[in-house]
Write a protein that binds this DNA or RNA. Sequence first.
RNA 1: GGAGGGUUGGCUGAGCGGUCGAAAGCGGCGGUCUUGAAAACCGUUGUGGGUUUGCGCCCACCGGGGGUUCGAAUCCCUCACCCUCCGCCA
Length: 424
Amino acid sequence: MLDPTLIREDPEAVRRGLRAKRIDGAEAALDAWLLADEEYRLLRADLEAKQAHRNRESKRIGEAKRAGEDASDAIRAMGELAAEVKRLEERERALADRLERLQLDLPNLPHESVPEGESEHDNVVVKEWSGAAAPPDAAPHWTTMGDWGWLDAEAGARVAGAGFPVLRGGAARLVRGLERYFLDVLQEAGYLEVRVPYLANEASAVATGQLPDKEGQMYRVDDGFYLIPTSEVAVTNLHRDAILDADALPLRYAASTPCFRREAGSYGKDVRGLNRVHQFDKVEMVAFAAADASYAQLEAMTELSEGLLEALGLSYRRLSMCTADMGFTQAKKYDLEVWSPGQERWLEVSSVSNLTDFQARRLQVRARAGGAQGSGKPALVHTLNGSALAMPRTVAALVETYAGPDGLRVPDALVPYVGAGPLR
RNA sequence: GGAGGGUUGGCUGAGCGGUCGAAAGCGGCGGUCUUGAAAACCGUUGUGGGUUUGCGCCCACCGGGGGUUCGAAUCCCUCACCCUCCGCCA
């Protein structure tokens, strides 16, 4: 949610930001919001004057009654005003609802350092790193994993459906090892490990911005819960409606959870093998940072994820996402793409974002010196999240890079977790 | 699944339909005292919005929503969440 004061005081700056984001309907929502806000404020002035009048009179009636006087005339006279106040209050509620709905249609504004662009083609490669040399004839991971009995799409389809592949044997061990390795690295870096619910209620989904924007991406269960599409939803909501200790910032969390995504409309090579599935495991970082520290935090988180890829010896590149390719809630976002030698294409394995105060405003996560019981004015924090890393594509890149005749060559960093290999 | 209890300010916890934005305690902040600190004592201390150069004034908020009333933390309806007990269960 954007700061209403900012929208009011500098609507043209907001408009420029919205335009850069290339989100349908955002500018129309802005115009509608400005109009409704104007009406709302006029109405408020009128309503508050009448409320003040009513409060004064009611107080007088109370005093008169206590003094034993007859107040029935005054009460009768107040009837009309009371009705008018009620009418205005209804109108105020309607307008407030409308303003809030419109505000939910306004995406976060891009940071000035974000490249302006029209589509994913305008994302800027800001870094490229070369890892272990892959065999020139590297096979796609689904071939290798099929041969080794590591990947069973049919079994997964039997259990659930298409897009729910089953990992067997070495692949399952590999994921377990990666998960432990990533979490260990994050813990070392000061992230607190948490295990969280995999279902989120509607309030949580709205607060992190999945709703109403990305309703179609999430699975919903009968009881009204949503399956989390990323641990961001669960972890970021940990502190919803809380006042944190400003001196304890940044608060950093690491969580490993399955992620559930409907991925409607995907097809072709995008969905082969592990490229895009409905359920996958991911280790995620979430940070609550002071407003003046969030962009430094974004760099630190990104470098942490890059360090994981480097330790695994996987070639990757970092993209600074352009204004049009960022998500709704993001002010700045980096994607890390790992090189897939068997498919000769880049695969997104991590996405690290600074959501500034946009998400915190919906979440009502604030911080003050001394914590909730401390002094000073509570100020909204900035929230960030990033993957470290998504499992399926990491596994795909590992298999395509390190497959040998006897199984998977194990990078040194993973040896403590899955053994020296080759892994089968 | 069944039965009951609860939700009030940063926390604990009072609250008769009017003088309640809300007692008291704790915590925070400022001060007195002290070489310093603690203790003690005094004062002060919710959030959001509007208005004013400023002192200030006004409005809303006692889990969410709706209602009754001149007037609601207090009465009614409804929803959500939490707790206890019973049942079932990894």
